[in-house]
Amino acid sequence: MESVLDLVLGHFNYWAVIALLMIGLYGIIARQNLLKKLACLSIFQTGVFLLFISWGYRHDATVPILAEGFSRYANPLPQVLMLTAIVVGVATLAVGYALIVRIHKAYGSIEEDAILEKDQQEQE
């Protein structure tokens, strides 16, 4: 019983993150609304950020800022990587939003199937 609880407590973060990743992935593939797609892409990315930060966590430790009286610190490296990744993610999102604005200007819709339909009609 004890070991099962340990397993669940030790891995709950991973499983929650996996659930987040899958919600994001499903949304990216299944949703037709472009804005929704981007939001789901962002959920997917955030899941990865959480995964990294979870890897850097350490029991009974403190934030990685060296100070008197503390000797155990969380792992700083995943945090550094995620600082970079968050910014990269937002830059990508910004370009995505800009594309949505332009697509809306050109097609008057941001539903993927409607846009494809308009292209089809135009070709005929």
């Binding site: 959480l50 930060i53 850097g56 966590y57 610190y73 945090q79 968050i86």
Partner: peptide, 9 residues
């Protein structure tokens, strides 16, 4: 992130 000791993030 704060709970997981990553204030900068």
């Amino acid at each position: 992130f704060l709970v997981l000791d990553a204030p900068d993030v």
